[in-house]
Amino acid sequence: MIKTKLFLTSISLVILMLLVKPVVATVYDIESNSKRLIGEPKVHKVVKGDYFQELAEKYDVGFLALLAANPQHDPFLLEIDSEVVIPNQMLLPFISRKGIVINLPELRLYYFSPEESKVHVFPVGIGRQGLSTPLTSTVIGEKRKDPDWRPTKEMQERHFAEHGKYLPDVVPAGPNNPFGKYALRLGTSEYLIHGSNKRFGIGMRASSGCIRMYDDDIKWLYENVPVNTKVRVVNQPVKMSFENGDKQLIEIHQQLSDLETTKGNAILTKAMQRFVGTNRESWQKLLPVIEKPHGLVVELAK
């Protein structure tokens, strides 16, 4: 009887370990320099207890990315047996495939492996409106494990204005540290790629300008990305590609309002107009996506 109970307990633990997966980067093979499409479409069938934040962590995607791809769902009250699109197919940003690339509108970080034709893709949290993560081209200037958090003067003033008291000068490593367990500095600036002591906010605009990651993701980055790795922070809400010379693909994300440089619909760029051309069927398919971007790859009419 005791042996039977121990056996059943062991089986239960194995099943639990298989079901509860740690958050890790999604890794994609890059077939060639001429192709930009990576990943495959995926759909999750909802079971009891599912909600968007849990699914975002399970599949290592951003909360807002899930929301944009599934506007028909209530993110906290998902209907059992309904289907949730997991946005893990994408076009690579239009930039040289080296080091780290952070595309702000899609709230993703790409790390291009220097030794293999692979790219690691992570969801990130970025600066909220009014405190935007800056566009930059720099390097990883420093890596820290168990970093202290020292709020800037601006943070102190904002906190005092909102709460009537100042933050501590230094918050040491531990559960109250907003940096989590690891931090990578962008050049010599005050901006970091770091973990977080809050699960909610990855894949959202929630920080004071730094780039937040899930704990396991930043741990992987800390352990695998060396100091002096190139980092580029870009603003590409629209990504386009001709795959295999004929398949015409486009991916549109919500433009960050405080990074807009033109009036009206900033997404309708000349490059996009040239790419789509005069095909009426393509524009009919695309206009609803321009109006309400969902961040999914769309194949245009031939």
Rank of each mutant, 00 (worst) to 15 (best):
R158S: 09
L37F: 02
T26N: 13
D246F: 12
A68H: 13
A68E: 12
K98E: 10
E106T: 05
E154L: 14
I290D: 02
Y182F: 08
H294R: 13
N197G: 07
G201V: 08
D148Y: 14
I95E: 09
D215P: 01
S10D: 03
S257C: 00
N88S: 15
S82E: 09
A68Y: 11
P105D: 07
R144F: 00
A173T: 10
G203N: 02
G295F: 01
L64I: 14
Y214H: 09
S82M: 08
L64Y: 09
E106I: 05
Y110G: 07
L296T: 11
Y51G: 09
Y222E: 00
M213P: 03
G39H: 06
T262N: 11
P134T: 14
E223G: 05
K143E: 02
T133K: 00
T278G: 09
E162I: 09
I193A: 00
Q254V: 14
A69T: 11
K302L: 13
E154V: 15
D217M: 02
S207Q: 08
E31R: 12
L221R: 08
I38K: 02
S282E: 12
V101E: 00
H159M: 04
I202W: 03
Q248P: 01
T229S: 11
M240R: 04
Q273G: 03
P22R: 07
A301D: 14
E243C: 01
E106L: 02
P93K: 04
F275W: 06
G209I: 10
M90C: 11
G187F: 05
S208M: 12
L184S: 04
G277S: 11
F122P: 00
V43S: 12
D146R: 15
L184N: 02
K118P: 00
M1T: 15
V227G: 02
V231P: 01
P75I: 10
E190G: 02
V238C: 06
R108G: 13
G245F: 08
V84T: 04
R212P: 05
L55D: 14
S208Y: 11
K42T: 10
C210V: 05
D246M: 07
G130T: 11
P293H: 05
P226N: 06
Q273K: 15
L19C: 14
A206I: 13
L64N: 14
E115I: 15
V47L: 13
G127Y: 07
N235C: 04
R199W: 03
E299D: 04
P293R: 08
G164T: 10
L249F: 02
L16D: 01
K48G: 06
Q248D: 06
Y28Q: 07
P293D: 05
M155P: 00
R212Q: 07
T138G: 03
E281T: 15
F52A: 12
D258I: 15
P105H: 06
I38G: 09
N88R: 09
N197I: 07
D29T: 15
I38H: 01
L221K: 09
G201S: 08
D217P: 00
E281A: 15
V119S: 03
S241V: 04
K21Y: 03
N265C: 14
V20D: 05
K198G: 05
K145L: 04
V14D: 01
V61D: 07
G295N: 05
P147D: 06
V298A: 00
E83N: 13
K58V: 10
